[in-house]
């Protein structure tokens, strides 16, 4: 084979690979990015229905309750401004506590209940889930503008 056509084939396959990889990455991004919304945004109807996203905030004090079956947990997550009711089936992380930060991932039903498939609590007592902190800060800023 001539060096020239060999070069062309090499270059061609490299470009094809790169295009393929980029396409793969982009579609994977499109389908699998999990967006994050604060309880305030969810309450304002800015969150999608029937698509997976995350909410972060504090677990509302006194809101944790288990259904009679023992597996399903109900609680509410708040950014101090708005409260979103959540249900989750399964075991909660050991760090999950009322009044502490948590992030939940799942879908919102049309009647405003958030059905979580994943509950992420903070890993140690110093570390607040970033997203939970972010939600609080947002609400905090919102409060400010109202106050002054």
């Amino acid at each position: 084979m001539k060096p020239r056509s060999k070069r062309l084939i090499l270059l061609g396959s490299a470009v094809a690979l790169l295009v393929g990889a980029v396409a793969l990455v982009l579609t994977a991004f499109q389908q699998n990015l999990v967006f994050f919304h604060t309880p305030t945004e969810v309450a304002a109807g800015k969150a999608p229905v029937e698509r997976v996203f995350r909410i972060g905030g504090l677990v509302e004090e006194g809101s944790i309750a288990r259904n009679d079956d023992g597996y399903t947990v109900r609680f509410a997550i708040t950014d101090t401004a708005q409260v979103i009711p959540v249900t989750y089936r399964g075991s909660l992380p050991s760090m999950f506590q009322e009044g502490k930060g948590a992030v939940v991932q799942g879908k919102l039903t049309s009647d405003g209940l958030f059905v979580a498939t994943e509950v992420l609590a903070k890993h140690d007592e110093n570390y607040m889930p970033v997203e939970a902190q972010y939600a609080l800060d947002k609400a905090h800023q919102a409060n400010q503008t109202v106050q002054y």
Binding site: L58, T78, T80, G99, K100, L136, H140
Partner: peptide
């Protein structure tokens, strides 16, 4: 007392 971060 209305501030949740204070509790934290």
């Amino acid at each position: 007392s209305w501030c949740v971060s204070c509790r934290q």
